[in-house]
């Protein structure tokens, strides 16, 4: 990695990183990528988030679905771990709770492939600052 020697350097990195994130979020092209975020804090991992994450990584690849699977921190829904946020290109993201391998399989087959929602949605009820 190069060193950032000025604010201008930081801004450049920020623009590059933003574009990458935006592409993932907006997904202008119909083949835009599906984004899957797995909450991987200690509590999530203890409830099996690691297995869930591995499952998404392997199965999405096997089933030929263009997706980015990333880990993230705690979403706050401790009662429903493991929690996973799925964002289909150009759509609002949806958070699912209690995602074990079986649920993950259902999410891939129904929601990611066909846009059909499955049970286990956690309604997000907070405002995020930008």
């Amino acid at each position: 990695m190069e060193k950032l020697k000025s604010l201008a350097d930081l801004k450049r990195i920020r623009e590059e990183a933003k574009t990458k994130l935006d592409l993932r979020v907006r997904g202008d092209n119909p083949e835009g990528l599906v984004q899957v975020k797995v909450a991987m804090a200690t509590c999530g991992i203890a409830s099996g988030a690691k297995q869930t994450m591995d499952f998404f990584v392997e199965e999405l690849d096997k089933r030929g679905i263009g997706a980015v699977v990333t880990q993230t921190g705690c979403m706050g829904y401790c009662y429903a771990e493991p929690t996973v946020e799925v964002q289909l290109p150009g759509q609002e993201s949806v958070v699912f709770g209690y995602v074990d391998r079986k649920k993950a399989d259902e999410i891939i087959e129904k929601y990611i492939k066909n846009g059909e929602l499955v049970e286990g949605i956690i309604p997000v009820n907070y405002e995020k600052i930008d």
Binding site: A17, K37, T72, G73, M75, T83, K128
Partner: peptide
């Protein structure tokens, strides 16, 4: 929290 990948500074 729960939005970015904590292991990626970008």
């Amino acid at each position: 929290c729960g939005f970015i990948n904590p292991e990626n500074i970008d």
